[in-house]
């Protein structure tokens, strides 16, 4: 019983769940970006997301004995391991770009002249989330 609870607690605290929650919050604010830009809150959430990704990557790269790396991971073919990593690879760059866009534009992101950057921000958010989902899905096999 104790070990089962501990197992769920550890999984609940794993970076993947935190990343899901932050992405969910960010999705709401991204939809509101045009009408009611909450740029400070979004930037803090993005910083938190970036930090969580760094935590996740450090956990998976430098501490390969952690619970995140399962036996199935070790049994995968080289191509699929590389693909999972490659899917995860661009997300920190995309998030950093989104942070820079918001730091430059602040609440002016809702203005007409920032239309392309708004699209860019939405694209970065959506692509990061899709890539993360892909990586998460592949890690389940």
């Amino acid at each position: 019983m104790f070990s089962t609870n501990l197992f769920f607690a550890i999984n609940f605290l794993s970076p993947d769940f935190l990343i899901f929650f932050i992405f969910g919050a960010l999705a709401v604010f991204t939809f509101w970006l045009r009408k009611k830009p909450q740029h400070k809150l979004i930037v803090w959430l993005l910083f938190l997301l970036e930090a969580t990704f760094v935590w996740k990557l450090l956990a998976e790269i430098f501490f390969p004995l952690s619970h995140l790396v399962t036996e199935q991971y070790l049994l995968w073919s080289v191509v699929f391991i590389t693909h999972r990593w490659l899917v995860l690879l661009p997300i920190p760059f995309l998030l950093a770009t989104a942070i820079v866009i918001l730091l430059v534009y602040h609440d002016k992101i809702s203005d007409h002249h920032a239309r392309e950057y708004r699209r860019c921000f939405s694209l970065l958010m959506v692509s990061s989330f899709v890539l993360f989902l892909l990586s998460f899905g592949e890690s389940l096999f």
């Binding site: 770009t97 820079v100 866009i101 430059v104 534009y105 970065l124």
Partner: peptide, 14 residues
Amino acid sequence: RIHESLSLAAVLSA
């Protein structure tokens, strides 16, 4: 004010 060139550079470099 931060110049727009920085955000353009960030998108391009990504």
